[in-house]
Amino acid sequence: MRVYAPATSANLNVGFDTLGVALRPLDGSPLGDTLAVASAEQDSLTVTGPYAHELKGTNIVEKALWRFRELTGIQQPLAMHLEKGMPVGSGLGSSAASVVAAVVAINGYFDKPLDTEAERALMAELEGELSGGVHWDNLLPCLLGGLCLHDAKLPVPEDWVWLLAYPGIRLETKAMRALLPKAIPLADAVAQAARLGRFVDALHRQQGPLAASLMLDPLVEPHRAPLVPGFSELKDRLLAGGALAAGLSGSGPTLFAVFDDMAKARQALDQAQLWVSPQQGFAHLCRVDNDGAAFLE
């Protein structure tokens, strides 16, 4: 049995810690984690993929199996193989993808002894251990697919094309959260909450340009953007070149941008490829992955 868990872009400017989207590259490039599980005489875990070398210490997949056994009492040994298809500390939900793939695959292999609530609780526990907090804005779109406000799936304009540009540097979520102020002015919080509400309303009214115009982040991005060389300059160029919205994906360093014109999106892709490291970075045009975590066989 194999399970694929896609990359996600969280926050999306307007929905800090609440909003996220699962994405799939248009060119068919894999951008996610895949876990295969099979019966065995003893436990084993192998890890391959372009980012396998970035994983250090005990893998979260192993911890998922240990906790699953504690919760269910099932002790059957498993041979597991993780294909690590996205970089760690990229702002693309790398830890969430590993967690979701592990829990869905292991629970599915044993005919789902954990119900939906217990399955999600285990994901939250494991993600919290990895990232220092539970980030539903990555976990739930990775699990459910689509654009999610917590576990509510939102309609997405069919003509939206998403750009993801990973520059090739690593920024740990814990460190990026430590940059944020502990409190913000009430008026600023109210304004951002209203902006999120209007964003959701615009999507349901099929007003894509209005929704995208509300994807703004005056609260978090100003504290994080200086740690990503060239981010602000590229963002400004993309907006000037026709992007409807742009910002940091999750805590960065990946940049996301939204377009409703494929020609402009392709021009933006060319610019993004000049920004990213040719060795460690990448840039992709994407559509929304509506499937989320999926059984491949």
Score class of each variant (00 low, 15 high):
residue 1 M to S: 14
residue 3 V to C: 07
residue 3 V to L: 05
residue 4 Y to T: 10
residue 6 P to V: 13
residue 8 T to E: 09
residue 8 T to I: 09
residue 18 T to V: 14
residue 18 T to S: 08
residue 23 L to S: 10
residue 23 L to G: 09
residue 23 L to T: 13
residue 24 R to T: 14
residue 25 P to F: 06
residue 28 G to E: 04
residue 29 S to R: 12
residue 31 L to F: 00
residue 32 G to V: 07
residue 33 D to I: 10
residue 42 Q to I: 05
residue 43 D to F: 01
residue 44 S to W: 08
residue 46 T to H: 05
residue 47 V to C: 14
residue 47 V to T: 12
residue 50 P to Y: 06
residue 50 P to R: 06
residue 57 G to S: 11
residue 57 G to F: 05
residue 61 V to H: 00
residue 61 V to T: 12
residue 66 W to G: 03
residue 71 L to M: 15
residue 72 T to V: 01
residue 74 I to A: 01
residue 78 L to V: 15
residue 80 M to N: 02
residue 82 L to I: 06
residue 82 L to S: 04
residue 84 K to F: 04
residue 88 V to W: 03
residue 90 S to C: 04
residue 91 G to S: 02
residue 93 G to L: 02
residue 93 G to K: 05
residue 97 A to F: 00
residue 97 A to W: 07
residue 97 A to V: 07
residue 101 A to W: 01
residue 109 Y to A: 03
residue 112 K to D: 14
residue 114 L to R: 13
residue 116 T to D: 14
residue 121 A to M: 03
residue 122 L to M: 08
residue 124 A to R: 15
residue 124 A to C: 05
residue 125 E to P: 09
residue 126 L to M: 12
residue 126 L to H: 10
residue 128 G to S: 08
residue 130 L to Y: 00
residue 132 G to Q: 08
residue 135 H to Y: 02
residue 137 D to W: 11
residue 138 N to Y: 04
residue 144 L to F: 09
residue 147 L to R: 10
residue 147 L to E: 12
residue 149 L to V: 04
residue 156 V to A: 10
residue 156 V to S: 07
residue 157 P to I: 08
residue 158 E to G: 06
residue 158 E to N: 03
residue 160 W to E: 04
residue 160 W to G: 02
residue 167 P to G: 06
residue 172 E to K: 14
residue 173 T to P: 08
residue 175 A to Q: 13
residue 179 L to I: 00
residue 179 L to D: 01
residue 186 L to D: 00
residue 188 D to Q: 15
residue 189 A to L: 09
residue 192 Q to A: 10
residue 193 A to Y: 01
residue 198 R to L: 15
residue 201 D to I: 10
residue 202 A to F: 04
residue 203 L to Q: 09
residue 207 Q to T: 02
residue 209 P to T: 12
residue 213 S to C: 12
residue 213 S to K: 09
residue 220 V to W: 11
residue 220 V to G: 05
residue 224 R to W: 10
residue 225 A to R: 12
residue 227 L to P: 00
residue 228 V to T: 08
residue 228 V to W: 07
residue 232 S to L: 13
residue 232 S to K: 06
residue 235 K to C: 14
residue 236 D to L: 11
residue 239 L to I: 12
residue 239 L to W: 07
residue 241 G to D: 15
residue 245 A to D: 02
residue 246 A to G: 01
residue 247 G to W: 02
residue 252 G to Y: 04
residue 253 P to S: 03
residue 254 T to K: 06
residue 254 T to P: 07
residue 259 F to A: 04
residue 262 M to A: 08
residue 262 M to L: 15
residue 263 A to N: 14
residue 264 K to D: 09
residue 265 A to Y: 05
residue 266 R to I: 08
residue 267 Q to F: 00
residue 271 Q to S: 14
residue 274 L to T: 13
residue 281 G to V: 03
residue 284 H to E: 07
residue 287 R to I: 08
residue 287 R to N: 14
residue 287 R to H: 15
residue 287 R to S: 13
residue 287 R to G: 13
residue 289 D to Q: 03
residue 296 L to D: 01
